[in-house]
Design a protein around this nucleic acid. Structure first.
Lengths: 331, 331
DNA sequence: TCCGGCTGAGAGAGCGCTCTCTCGAAAGGG
DNA sequence: CCCTTTCGAGAGAGCGCTCTCTCAGCCGGA
């Protein structure tokens, strides 16, 4: 009880396999009556082309890998960003009938697995989400002669086109807002310095402070809520007189708000807080969080289109998307 | 500049293609010296088997589809459950070297796409995450003669093995806790009644109230935070004297806490609140949320194993996992 | 009437692999 | 010493499809 083949369709329609193939692939050089006969046969037999056979000859698979190169727990549960990217990319790829193969590359062994898989030609291209600088995967994949695009600028310089948002500019926006609000002692909770987002947002902070003749007060977190709380306590210890803090992501900002509350500081009266990312939860903090929004969905979509462009021999130029300050009540 | 084929490996090693294939597939009937020669050739040429050619003859693809049949926005951003399931299932499948093809089936058109894809034999099996009763996909897929397992009992009776947690029992646990705490007027915010989780958790609530001779006070939400807030306001309007509420998921519970705060009720002094799911955020609410934990990771893992079992002709019996009450401060 | 051009359909090779069948050689028993 | 058994390796078919090449048939122009 095997699935019907193109051969069977051809036989039933009384044509050759080649003609049946032409109809299946929508070629126009088939007479209407013959085309109809084939379509009827396909319908009656419930024919569906065998993808393996097809891709054996076409050398295409019509699927792309979405490689998430982060420890799995971080990926989903903590940071809603990843989820949004995955979803948006999936939706965008659906529109061009490509499938998403999701690969989580957390450990070294899974890196090897991913490499083998990609090298095997299972997919036509790769979308890489990798935030850590130490990650060897971007370099490894770029060697594989497979179209690869990256979500976010790769931390090590490597010849992969990427889509990123303007982290430096966004941070500048945030800190300038604090300066404009009359804040004098503006601290920052920076992200991990082995991550591009962490680096660039700190750069933006420093740029503005330098220009506005203020002293920088820096603590470093690792983008988790907990680390934000710890860093905030540390900052308050270091400089009890601070009146503003720019936090490199919202998750840490949530933790910082918690610490500020525990320390009896009113936000924004005593201390103004600006986050980064504009995650869902930023609307529900107490008080609602002023933050820098970057277009996650657009970034994912742009990444897909960049990859699709690569398939067609399009340009491999990076895409940088603008950020925007969302003013709520915390600053 | 094509990728090397098995033919090339065989030629280089001075053996036949058949023997090379034997080595690649780890058969033991190859003399050690020949095996080494082949392995060396593989290494030198950087040979990787062509999956299309292989699955053309083996009729296997070594990948499974993870079909998420929910509106995309709900899937990821709102409910961390989905993400955890996807992650856990991926990790578990990695261990047996199977790939995950992620498919989001939100609209009717994407349903058709998914069906076509599955029918095309792209994957060896399907894991279905579908929560809505009206969803036609479970029935459609079960007709496709492809191994299918479901995360959660399908809402319409359909012949698919599933892994679920004990929703009724979990709800009973929660409500019994409220009864044991001396609460007299115990309301509930139920989930959507076209979802199994929504139905069963309401059933559990009713079971306990019936046995303990209390009146049931029901509002219905749709598992979003916002709907929880609305439902809570409604309950307070209906019965200002209520002293406890069982909320069918944590997301709605967060909304409910917000409404209670706005209404000036203290939790748990005036009103005790119990949620369901034990999401991450439940630890960070004010006060921390007492809730029913169900083993999401274990459920996902069990689903994978159920599917793998099906491949081997194993049993197609449903698996029900126990739930557990996590007592924090809200009740 | 003949011929060249064009359109539509068939023949058949070949994509890269697995797996059965076959066969030679080595080993063991009578 | 010969015959049977076992083991290791090769030959070759075939998985289901695409795509090039070929060719039949028709039309129009000279």
């Amino acid at each position: 009880m095997r699935r019907p083949t193109l051969e069977a369709v051809a036989a039933r329609a009384g044509v050759s396999r080649a003609t049946a193939s032409r109809v299946v692939n929508g070629q126009t050089t088939v007479a209407p009556n013959i085309r109809d006969a084939v379509l009827r046969a396909i319908d009656e037999l419930g024919y569906v082309p065998n993808p393996a056979a097809r891709s054996l000859v076409t050398q295409r698979t019509d699927s792309v890998a979405l490689v998430v190169s982060e420890p799995p727990t971080r990926v989903f549960s903590e940071d809603p960003l990843f989820s949004t990217v995955i979803r948006s990319a999936s939706v965008e790829l659906e529109t061009v009938n490509k499938q998403v193969v999701l690969m989580l590359a957390s450990s070294a062994s899974s890196h090897a697995r991913v490499e083998r898989y990609i090298a095997g030609g299972h997919v036509d291209g790769v979308m890489l989400i990798s935030m850590h600088g130490a990650d060897p995967l971007p370099a490894a994949l770029s060697r594989l002669r497979v179209p690869v695009v990256s979500y976010g600028r790769p931390a090590v310089p490597v010849d992969i086109p990427y889509v990123d948002n303007d982290n430096v500019g966004g941070a500048e926006l945030a800190v300038r807002h604090l300066v404009a609000g009359g804040r004098r002692r503006i601290a920052t909770i920076a992200g991990p310095q082995d991550m591009i987002g962490g680096q660039d947002r700190l750069t933006g902070y420093r740029n503005v402070l330098r220009d506005s003749d203020r002293r920088s007060i820096v603590a470093v977190g690792d983008f988790t809520r907990e680390s934000g709380a710890v860093a905030m306590r540390q900052l308050l210890g270091d400089d009890p007189g601070l009146d503003a803090v720019f936090v490199a992501n919202d998750l840490m900002a949530v933790g910082a708000l918690q610490s500020l509350r525990q320390a009896g500081r009113r936000v924004p009266d005593d201390v103004a807080v600006v986050g980064f990312d504009d995650i869902e939860a930023a609307q529900y903090t107490e008080p609602p969080l002023t933050t820098v929004r970057h277009p996650v969905v657009e970034q994912a979509t742009a990444m897909v289109r960049l990859l699709l462009g690569l398939f067609e021999g399009g340009p491999a130029d990076p895409v940088i998307l603008p950020t925007e300050l969302v003013v709520r009540e915390s600053a």
